[in-house]
Design a protein around this nucleic acid. Sequence first.
RNA 1: GGUGCUAUCGUCUAGUGGCCUAGGACAACGGCCUCUCACGCCGUAAACCCCGGUUCGAGUCCGGGUAGCACUACCA
Length: 537
Amino acid sequence: MERRVRVRFAPSPTGALHIGGVRTALYNYLFARQHGGDMLLRIEDTDSTRFVPGAEEYILESLHWLGIEIDEGLRAKESKEESRKSKVESRKSKEGIEIEAVGDHGPYRQSERREIYHTYVNQLLESGHAYYAFDTPEELEAKRKEIPNFQYDARSRMGMTNSLTLGMDEAKRRIANGEKYVVRFLVEPDEDVTVHDLIRGDVTINSNILDDKVLYKSADDLPTYHLANIVDDHLMEISHVIRGEEWLPSAPLHVLLYRAFGWSDTMPAFAHLPLLLKPDGNGKLSKRDGDRLGFPVFPLEFHNEKDGTVSSGYRESGYFPEAVINFLALLGWHTTGDQELFTMDELIAQFSLDRVSKSGAKFDYEKGKWFNHQYLQMKSNEELAELFMPIVESKVESQKSKAISRRSKAEVAKIIGLVKDRVNFVPELWEQTNFFFVAPSEYDEKSLAKRWKEDSPRHMTEMLALLEQQEDWSAEALDNLIMPWIAEKEYGVGVVMNAFRICLVGAARGPHIWAITDVLGKEETLRRVRTALAKIG
RNA sequence: GGUGCUAUCGUCUAGUGGCCUAGGACAACGGCCUCUCACGCCGUAAACCCCGGUUCGAGUCCGGGUAGCACUACCA
């Protein structure tokens, strides 16, 4: 009974990988790793009409970025070139990745498994569990209009055009004539079918509500999801099917298919995950919600070649993959304790299907930001500098002459250390540090109104004289110079310091004033005070 | 309409009959810190869907409502 754990993530290449799909992949991955099993990736491209070019590469690259590793099936190939590139550079590479297929249960694209499906469709046909049907889509459409709640099932199939009513000889003749047909699964009526779900327990439905599902369509010589899924999971020796709750209603059908094939004893265990819901209103989180609500619902930015749309991604928004993983892991799963921050290894160790929630989780983007904030704080200043340098360069470049100087990575790291606790994302670092790179050319009106007093020009002029003579530019020395002077003159610390800050920063914000003078240096500090005096007097 | 799943603060959730005057986190609000803006720290407000039943005792078990969601394709 001890079976090797083998799970699969089986997306359709119909567009960008939705964040809900990412979570499904993650839970599969955590489960596989925890049990020392295999994580497979299979592409379910049985709907030729919905195929979107680039989607497969996108899916694999997304999982790769997130650190969800594939053991078998299709996966992104780690090229030498990529590993040499810096993180920032590889972020920019949107071009196709290399794909490799590993494992001996392939092919791993369903469109390449046609021969296999033929065999199994025939098996069902021969055993009487399936039949040919010739009703055209138009005829079915008409039927649905004519009869409310029409369903192709035990009650109606004898009134339709199929091998049951026509006879097998006539059916074969039609097929030989090139007539389009489908193969339908014959569902026996009045039978209670029970599916055991690892998250929800036993779910029982009566077979009367099931219709005779289309298993195969001759039009494109491809099976539908239901058939391909069962055949592949069986052949690939899948032990656990972990998928979204939208599949729960068809799980009994899948159980029936396993029975019809005689595979009941090796049927995988099922676990249906709660859905990810829209943050506002009701319903399942959809691909459109992201741009409507102003946050990404995709791991990476996606350029859809089919409809020309561009969808924003977590990576391009400045998220760290660890933060996305952590955030997603907790949408539908939680430990007994109060722990909120988990590394991938901790998740692998602690994850369990019986602690997955049963109810849907509304997607709370604000909490996602908080997770990124946490992970950003854990990064070293040097790591962040690596990511921030290209942003600084492009910004300084765009401001041309106003740039004071190029700064070394060490200097940038030091600057980041002064402000990193106040940002959630690397790109936000710029608005906190821009004055370190570019001297203020204008002064914030609100700050001026509140902090630039009548006496400020005089204060600054006197302070300038004091600073000009100062040799030791350390924070401590400056503090020892200025504070006693303010006290002696009875100017008020707040009044003087805020005016000074406006001269250096251009607004009433930023880190501690002596940290700013330290980075700026004597010359630049004095220059900014003189400029301010000249401009705002 | 039918079938199924679900139901604790605004949100994610802890809670598996007494430890619950319901805990944590995000968000909100207030305070402290302070030369500014933040961060941080401290604190406040905030929930067991409703009605029955079982029990000495129910957020926790059962039944019925109600509500939300999913599915109901030659899509996955």
